[in-house]
C-alpha cells in the first residue's frame, strides 16, 4: 500500500467518523446511538492501524487494538447491559430542534477547520488534514452533551469526545507516547465503572435517568 493510498483511505475514515458524530446528534433511540458509537470506534481503530502501517510505528497497532477492545467491544457492551437492566431501551428521547443542532454542528466543523489551519500548514505528516476532523468530533461530542438531557446519551457524547481526542493524537502526531495512551485508556475504563454505578444511583433516586430532574442545587434568590 502506497502512502498516497493510505492517506486517502484515512481521509475516507475521517469522513466516516465525522458522519457518525453527526448521526449521533440527530438520533433519538438509545440503542441506535450506541451502535453508531461502536461504529465510530471501529473507524477510529482501523484508521489508527493504517496510520501505524504508514508510519511503521508498532505502538500504534497496540493503540489500535486498545481502541478496538475498549471502544468497540467493552464500553458498548457495558452500556448495552446497563440500558437493558435499567429498562430504558424503549424510551425515546425528546430531541429539541434537530435542524438547529445540525446547523450549529456545521458551524463547529467550519470553526475547527479555521482553528487548525495554521497547524495544518506546519505539519508534514500525511494525516495532517484530518486534524480538523478530530477537533470537530470533540466539539460535536461536546454539543451532544449540552443538547441532550439523558444521562446515557450524555455519557455517549463524552465518550465520542474521547474518540475525537484519540483521533487528534494519531492524526496530528502519529500517536501519543504509549505510556500516555495506556493511562488514558485506564482512566476511561475507570470512568466507565463510575458512570455505571451512577446510572443505578440516579435511577433509584430519581426514578429516571433524565438529568432535567436534577435541578435542586442552584443559587437561591
Amino acid at each position: 500500500m502506497s502512502t498516497q493510498l493510505a492517506a486517502q483511505i484515512n481521509s475516507l475514515l475521517a469522513a466516516f467518523i465525522l458522519l457518525t458524530a453527526f448521526a449521533m446528534l440527530a438520533q433519538r433511540k438509545k440503542l441506535a446511538i450506541l451502535h453508531l458509537f461502536a461504529w465510530q470506534g471501529l473507524f477510529l481503530s482501523v484508521s489508527t492501524a493504517i496510520v501505524g502501517f504508514v508510519a511503521k510505528s508498532h505502538h500504534l497497532y497496540i493503540s489500535s487494538l486498545l481502541t478496538l477492545t475498549l471502544k468497540v467491544v467493552v464500553l458498548p457492551y457495558i452500556l448495552h447491559v446497563l440500558i437493558r437492566k435499567l429498562k430504558i431501551r424503549k424510551e425515546i428521547e425528546a430531541v429539541v430542534n434537530v435542524p438547529t443542532t445540525m446547523l450549529i454542528g456545521i458551524a463547529l466543523v467550519i470553526f475547527s477547520y479555521h482553528l487548525t489551519a495554521p497547524i495544518r500548514e506546519l505539519s508534514t505528516l500525511v494525516t495532517r488534514s484530518t486534524l480538523a476532523v478530530a477537533l470537530a468530533t470533540v466539539m460535536l461530542g461536546l454539543l451532544m452533551m449540552i443538547t441532550r438531557r439523558h444521562a446515557v446519551t450524555q455519557i455517549i457524547g463524552f465518550l465520542a469526545m474521547e474518540n475525537g481526542l484519540f483521533f487528534a493524537a494519531t492524526s496530528a502526531t502519529y500517536g501519543m507516547p504509549l505510556v500516555v495512551e495506556l493511562g488514558v485508556a485506564l482512566d476511561i475504563l475507570i470512568a466507565a465503572f463510575i458512570f455505571g454505578i451512577f446510572f443505578f444511583h440516579i435511577n433509584t433516586t430519581f426514578d429516571s435517568l433524565d438529568v432535567d430532574q436534577m435541578a435542586r442545587l442552584k443559587e437561591e434568590d
Binding site: M145, A151, Q154, F158, I194, F195, F198, H201, I202, T205, F206, V211, M214, A215, R216, L217
Partner: peptide
C-alpha cells in the same frame, strides 16, 4: 446518596 449529593457528583463528573 441523597438526591442533592448525586446531582452534585454528576455535575462534578460531567
Amino acid at each position: 446518596r441523597t438526591p442533592s449529593a448525586i446531582e452534585a457528583a454528576w455535575k462534578y463528573f460531567i
